[in-house]
C-alpha cells in the first residue's frame, strides 16, 4: 500500500515537471532539473494484449516486461546489447529490449517468447529447439528463439547480410546465413550448431 502511494506521488511530480517544460520557453537557458523520479504513462500491446503502465522514465522495455508485467521469459543477460538474451520483436522486428526505453514504445506491438507459443502448443521454432537440443542451461534460449523466428522472416523479406555473395539476389536460409545473422545472440553453453539445425528444420535451405 505504501509502495502504491509513493508511485502515485512520483506520477504527479513527473507530470507537473513535464507540463512546465512544455509550456515555458523562457526557461531555455536554464539547465533542465528533473523531478526525483519522473514517471510517465505509456501504453503498448504485449502478445496481443493492451498494457497501460506508468513508469520511471529510466525503465527499459526489458525491465517493463520482466518487473512490471511479470513476463519473465525474456532474459536479462549483459543489459548492454551484447548478448541478445533480451531479444523481443517490436512491430515484427527483433531488437534488444535492454537498449530501449519503455516510454519510447507508445502504441507499439511487442511479441515476447510467451507470445510465440505455450507449453501445450509450441511455436514450430520452439519445437525444433527441443527436437535438436538447441540449448543446455536455457538462459539464452528465449532470446535465441525470438531472434531465430525474426531471422527467417528477415531472409524472407530480403534483408541483406554480411555473408551474402550477391546483394541483388534474394538471400537463402543457408547454414552460413543463419550463423552470421544470429551473431547477436551469445550462448555460453555453445549450442550454436544445434540452434542452426533447429532453424534449418523450420525454414532452412541446404548447405
Amino acid at each position: 500500500m505504501n509502495d502504491l502511494n509513493i508511485s502515485r506521488r512520483g506520477v504527479l511530480v513527473g507530470g507537473v515537471a513535464t507540463a512546465t517544460i512544455a509550456t515555458a520557453p523562457e526557461v531555455m537557458a536554464q539547465p533542465v532539473r528533473p523531478a526525483p523520479a519522473p514517471a510517465v504513462p505509456v501504453s503498448f500491446k504485449v502478445n496481443g494484449k493492451r498494457r497501460d503502465l506508468t513508469l520511471d522514465t529510466r525503465t527499459t522495455l526489458l525491465d517493463a516486461l520482466r518487473e512490471h508485467l511479470q513476463l519473465t521469459g525474456t532474459k536479462k543477460g549483459c543489459d548492454h546489447g551484447q548478448c541478445g538474451a533480451c531479444t523481443v520483436m517490436v512491430d515484427g522486428k527483433r531488437i534488444n529490449s535492454c537498449l530501449t526505453l519503455a516510454v519510447m514504445h507508445q502504441g507499439d506491438e511487442i511479441t515476447t517468447i510467451e507470445g510465440l507459443g505455450t507449453p501445450d502448443k509450441l511455436h514450430p521454432m520452439q519445437a525444433a529447439f527441443v527436437k535438436h537440443d538447441g540449448y543446455q542451461c536455457g538462459y539464452c534460449t528465449p532470446g535465441q528463439i525470438c531472434s531465430a523466428v525474426a531471422v527467417l522472416d528477415e531472409i524472407k523479406r530480403g534483408v541483406p547480410s554480411h555473408v551474402q555473395a550477391d546483394l541483388m539476389v534474394a538471400p537463402q536460409a543457408t547454414n552460413i546465413e543463419m550463423r552470421e545473422r544470429m551473431s547477436g545472440n551469445i550462448c555460453r553453453c555453445g549450442a550454436y550448431s544445434n540452434i542452426a539445425e533447429a532453424m534449418a528444420d523450420v525454414g532452412g535451405a541446404k548447405a
Partner: peptide, 28 residues
C-alpha cells in the same frame, strides 16, 4: 534520472535539445 518528451516538430525538437543537459534520442 531524466525527463522525457516526444517531439513532433523538428525545430521544436532542436530548441528543446539546445538546453543544457538535454539530448536527442532516436534508436538509443
Amino acid at each position: 534520472a531524466f525527463t522525457y518528451e516526444r517531439a513532433h516538430d523538428a525545430q521544436a525538437a532542436a530548441r528543446a535539445a539546445a538546453r543544457p543537459g538535454a539530448k536527442f534520442i532516436a534508436g538509443g
